[in-house]
């Protein structure tokens, strides 16, 4: 197994606040790795730094051996890094299928001119995009909703759709920002199963999550952040017994 993502001494300061402070870790190919931590620990900031949505103050990120630090989100996506958002970010005004079809953007090439002229190769490519997008909707079990406007789907369906869209990118690495937030227990279990299925397709998963049961069930490895710093990184069972982690999550026992 090789290292797919490597993060070294990554920091992001907002004024005096060190949202992410000297964090280093790596993600092995084929693994499910979770990042947990209390609110405000810097988990989402860390995701934004990796996927190019925020510039880092210092540090280094390399993906598949390439330095992706300072690259723009669209360039990072094109390298095969997909992501979802903490607050579902679907393309409103577009059908579920169209949403997923946008996910094929980096895997297709028709430009303005061939699109306007509807050239044969562009139309062929479009058919392939449509088929692949339908497959992803089927994989997520929402194929029957293909023609529904994305934002009129239920919350759980919207989360599934966002996943389908990210999968259409054929990512090597998928960053999931709280995929179970706002879901009930039953749906959370389903999300866990889905994430395992995604891993079985050969996609490495890095997940930020609050839901402990989900994280402990599916992760190969867990990293814990607190106040922007990494305080632990281990297997789920060991994390559960880690005193520092328990203290951060449950508070100190000194009244």
């Amino acid at each position: 197994m090789s290292v797919l993502l490597e993060v070294k001494n990554l920091s992001r300061h907002f004024g005096g606040l060190r949202a992410v402070d000297q964090v280093s870790f790596s993600v092995q190919e084929g693994a499910i790795k979770a990042v947990i931590g209390p609110n405000g620990a810097g988990k989402t900031t860390l995701f934004h730094l990796i996927s190019g949505y925020l510039p880092s103050t210092e540090g280094m990120v390399s993906f598949m051996g390439r330095d992706i630090h300072h690259k723009k989100p669209f360039e990072i996506a094109a390298l095969g890094l997909g992501r979802t958002f903490q607050h579902v970010r679907l393309f409103h005004g577009m059908s579920a299928l169209d949403n997923v079809m946008v996910g094929r953007h980096t895997r297709s090439s028709a430009g303005f001119l061939s699109g306007m002229l509807a050239l044969p190769h562009a139309r062929r490519e479009d058919r392939a995009i449509r088929e692949r997008a339908m497959e992803e909707l089927e994989f997520m079990g929402i194929a029957s909703l293909a023609d529904t406007e994305a934002t009129s789907l239920s919350f759980g369906q919207q989360r599934s759709l966002e996943l389908a869209r990210a999968l259409a990118l054929e990512p090597q690495l998928l960053l999931l920002d709280e995929p179970a937030a706002g879901l009930n227990m039953h749906e959370t279990v389903e999300v866990g199963e889905t994430i395992k299925k995604i891993r079985d397709r050969g996609v490495t998963v890095l997940i930020v999550e609050h839901d402990m049961s989900l994280v402990m069930n599916i992760s190969d490895e867990v990293m814990v952040l607190s106040y922007g710093q990494k305080i632990a990184e281990d297997e789920p069972l060991a994390i559960q017994k880690n005193e520092e982690v328990v203290r951060v999550y449950l508070g100190e026992d000194d009244g």
Binding site: F74, R83, F85, L90, F91, H92, G93, V102, S109, A110
Partner: peptide, 26 residues
């Protein structure tokens, strides 16, 4: 034709959620 094409979808995606369009490689 354009609005029905790959580029057209990307344009509507920019309208729908610009940051998410970026994460799809647009």
């Amino acid at each position: 034709n354009l609005m029905d094409s790959r580029v057209g979808r990307a344009l509507r995606a920019i309208h729908g959620a610009e940051d998410a369009a970026g994460s799809m490689g647009v």
